[in-house]
Design a protein around this nucleic acid. Structure first.
Lengths: 192, 192
DNA sequence: GAAAACATGTAACCGGTTACATGATTCT
DNA sequence: AGAATCATGTAACCGGTTACATGTTTTC
């Protein structure tokens, strides 16, 4: 059910259309939660029906209209309730480690390719996340700035600190994954 | 599609019934891939239909029968092909970090409880995984021993090394998660 | 004789993916 | 005029969860 809460989180800042949200999912929130258009539009309609959002048609150009969604009090309450509820951890289901456990079945080349892909995957994300932290530090994050505009000034350090903290966690995870995969490459050399 | 491959991996060691597999998913493989009975039994039937397994009814007691599944050559080939195929990484979807990014919305107590639950969650797994490594080191893992019995002796170090390597990766990840959550608790104290 | 373990299923539901589909507006 | 962007959907499918359901065998 996190998609709904990610949407609520975004709409606490300002009203948005489905397309606006889609762009956010491709940029900021997308780093922790991905959602395609085919999921967003139906979710918005369902959330409006459930009273979490209020939709309003806005004219756009000559003939066009778009629907702008505003979070309701009920939506805010739902988001706060979710924030105060401990998460249920999903069962372990990890294809990377599943494969690693049977690496003797792969050809050495395939095993190396797999580990290198693992490194490349996390390296790429590492750079994106580091860039995000730089943005936060230099005040260049427009979404964060809009969020800050909605909270009292003395709350700013908290808001900023948690965003930063989130990315630091993802960076630490990525670094651990890269280190692990590098040990794997060394292990393959040893065993050859 | 990893459920099928986890099943194939287990059946490369020896033929098993659905129930045997279920027990394995609760014990060894379960640490990297969870599967409930409601998923295993239908999967086995489908895999038999697809020629990856061969099922045979075995009498059990007076009136009972059970179905024992053996991996076919086609099943072995499929497993090897999977092992040699690079994994597609799923899109980011991480409720823990999603929540962390909006931690200013939670009450300080709820935020602390969340982080402590995060620590407890990984601490528990950490102990399970460390225990697994001890088992591997002392030769006390019966599943691993059965697997070793099916491979030539000079291959044993590889097989053992990859199992150990897998658990080391999960341990490193858990340690990173715990360290991150502890930094979070400290951050909450600072911001108070 | 009762409890624990062994054995196997069905069905409704849910969140997410992939592919397909369409049209308006703005910018160059 | 054409391209990029804005805007919004439908539908089939897939893997997984939860709840429901039943019967046998072995062990104490």
């Amino acid at each position: 059910m996190s998609l709904r809460h990610a949407i609520l989180a975004l709409l606490t800042v300002e009203p948005m259309t489905g397309y606006d949200l889609l762009k956010q999912f491709e940029a900021s929130v997308g780093h922790v939660w991905h959602a395609p258009d085919s999921q967003i539009y139906p979710a918005l309609r369902a959330m409006e029906k459930d009273g979490l959002l209020e939709g309003a048609d806005v004219t756009w150009g000559q003939r066009g209209t778009k629907r702008r969604y505003t979070i309701t009090e009920s939506g805010r309450a739902e988001f706060r309730a979710w924030m105060d509820t401990p998460l249920a951890y999903p069962r372990d289901r990890d294809p990377v480690h599943l494969k690693a456990a049977y690496l003797e079945w792969a050809t050495p080349d395939a095993a190396r390719a797999q580990l290198r892909a693992h490194i490349a995957h996390y390296q790429e994300r590492l750079e994106q996340w580091r860039e995000k932290i730089r943005e936060i530090e230099t005040g260049g994050s427009s979404m964060l700035n809009r969020r800050l505009a909605t909270v009292p000034e003395h709350e700013h350090p908290r808001t900023i600190a948690f965003k930063r903290y989130t990315y630091e966690g993802m960076i630490a995870r990525a670094e651990a994954e890269i280190a692990w995969a590098e040990r794997g490459l060394a292990l393959l050399d040893e065993l050859e």
